[in-house]
Amino acid sequence: MDPVLQSPMYFFLANFSFLEICYVSAILPRMLMNLGTQRRISLVACATQMCFFLMFGGSECLLLAVMVYDRYVAICSPLNYPLVMNHRVCIQLVTGSWTIGIPVMVGHTYQIFSLPFCGPNQINHFFCDIPPILKLACGDIFVNEMLVYIVAVLFGMVPFLLILGSYSTIISVILKLPSAASRAKAFSTCSSHLTVVELFFGSVIITHLTSNIRLSEGTDKVLSLLYTILTPMFNPMIYSLRNKDVIKALRKLLCK
């Protein structure tokens, strides 16, 4: 509602916030219900949870890469920023982030739950994540493990490397700015995003690229809690409470 916050950066941040709500809602309510009632989750509910979790998680990876592109254009090409990041382009980037991963993740989930499960039907985990499900399969899971690697590379490593490459250019441009105030302002707009990227991508990549190393169940749980609960919990503080424009707009709204 505040005119100061009607920029592409905050448009992407608003979409990211909504995506985080969907991402957490796919896991946390069912997790709390299972922990409170000790009820087991059905096969269909487990597959549904995994499908939505993967779709929202993949979209979040792509949207984080889009957000760094916005910062890249704003800092490295400020005069062309209004032309490059116009409203139409912003909508196209957000729509692509939301939709590209849907067919991939639906097919990935179907492939995993097409495996034979002839042994125990309990997972020692907080929710239906890929590694604990694959541990229950009694057939050959080589193809599935390769698919896990491919999906992790496409939606995890590739965006992460693009983000790192963009930030290396951004930092080199910031260091060349003449005034210390300009450098501090530029760093402050990037530090929040970089913190979220490190927390989210680090835990996701470690969990899914090391699925065939057979990490201990305790390690799996800690890593999964990091990118499903702790990172989304810290994001509002990282992005909003440390942002002077957001705090100023909130004060204006509360005063009204």
Rank of each mutant, 00 (worst) to 15 (best):
L250P: 00
L254A: 13
S25P: 02
I130Y: 02
R214S: 12
I141E: 00
M105F: 15
G139A: 09
C118R: 02
Y227F: 15
Y23A: 04
F126N: 07
I100D: 01
M1T: 14
A180L: 13
I238P: 02
Y10F: 15
S224K: 02
L241M: 14
I171H: 02
A181K: 05
F234S: 03
C255L: 12
I100C: 10
I75A: 06
V197E: 04
T210F: 15
Y227Q: 05
E60T: 10
L147N: 07
C190T: 07
M67I: 11
A249T: 06
C90I: 05
S224P: 01
L43C: 07
M55I: 15
F52D: 00
G58C: 11
K135E: 10
C255A: 14
Q38V: 08
L19H: 03
V197P: 01
I102A: 04
Y69I: 07
V94E: 01
S191G: 00
Q92C: 08
L32M: 11
V89S: 05
Q38K: 15
L161M: 09
T228C: 14
S114N: 09
L230T: 10
Q111H: 13
F155P: 02
Q38M: 07
V196M: 05
P232F: 09
L194C: 13
E60V: 07
L164M: 11
C138I: 07
S25G: 01
N124W: 10
N34V: 10
T109W: 03
I141K: 00
I21S: 02
T37M: 05
V143E: 11
I247D: 00
R183K: 03
S168T: 09
M85K: 00
I150P: 01
L254W: 14
N121K: 08
P103L: 06
Y72P: 02
S216L: 15
E145K: 01
K244Y: 10
N212E: 08
G156P: 04
K135N: 06
C138N: 09
E60R: 13
T99Y: 05
F11E: 02
P116G: 03
P78S: 14
D2S: 14
R40W: 10
F127D: 02
C128Q: 03
S188D: 11
T169N: 09
L115C: 08
M31D: 04
M55L: 06
